[in-house]
Design a protein around this nucleic acid. Sequence first.
DNA 1: TTTATTTGCTACATAATTGGTAGCAAAGCT
DNA 2: AGCTTTGCTACCAATTATGTAGCAAATAAA
Lengths: 111, 111
Amino acid sequence: MSLPTPGKPVRGSKSGNHLMALFDLLGRSWSMGIIWRLQEGSCTFRVLQERCESISPTTLNRRLKELTQSFLIERTVDGYALTNKGKEIFLLLKPLESWAKDWAKNFDTNE
Amino acid sequence: MSLPTPGKPVRGSKSGNHLMALFDLLGRSWSMGIIWRLQEGSCTFRVLQERCESISPTTLNRRLKELTQSFLIERTVDGYALTNKGKEIFLLLKPLESWAKDWAKNFDTNE
DNA sequence: TTTATTTGCTACATAATTGGTAGCAAAGCT
DNA sequence: AGCTTTGCTACCAATTATGTAGCAAATAAA
């Protein structure tokens, strides 16, 4: 899968609309989950894999590469870590947590 | 693809963590793009398809069903529309727009 | 300094998702 | 009645994701 880069055609926009490039990046399996889990603290590949509960190493590796190339993640002495940009995105995603909690009430747990 | 429902195991959480269910839902191709485009106003299937520039009817239909079942979208006399929950999500996604604009500066347009 | 362990992946095969094109049935004009 | 538009579905090809195994390099232990 090619990296969705602002300025280049992406899923959602032939003109490379910035926001659509971001949606393409974040809208890949596990992207947001990885950012969320990394916020808990920098960690190694294997630890991150455990935090994500059920991600395959193949997918984790792909996402890590993409997110790194997109300046959201970097490697430090502590392993993988969110960059400042990554932390910013996390802050933007954060409100989704409480919203999701409320949203969940709509679902009948017996279905 | 089954609907990622809070409380049931989803991509990202065997326990059905609400947030992970939301990430699973939004993290499917076009989910966020559709919400974004629908915010411009209620519209018909074909118009929505045009707004999305390059979505296939297959995928559009699939996403519409999922988002409808997830209470984010509904059908009105004007066609497809965001529900109140859908509008709420849109407001949470909105800040990503300006962030993406800034983020785009990191990418060398000549690459 | 051998001998484990742990870590960060890659290989490979299979399954699941997405995309693209064609086209059809129903509804709405004319 | 015929023509158009709309909202899809069928079908197949292409792309992504999953799962398991395992290997090379780095680190720790003996």
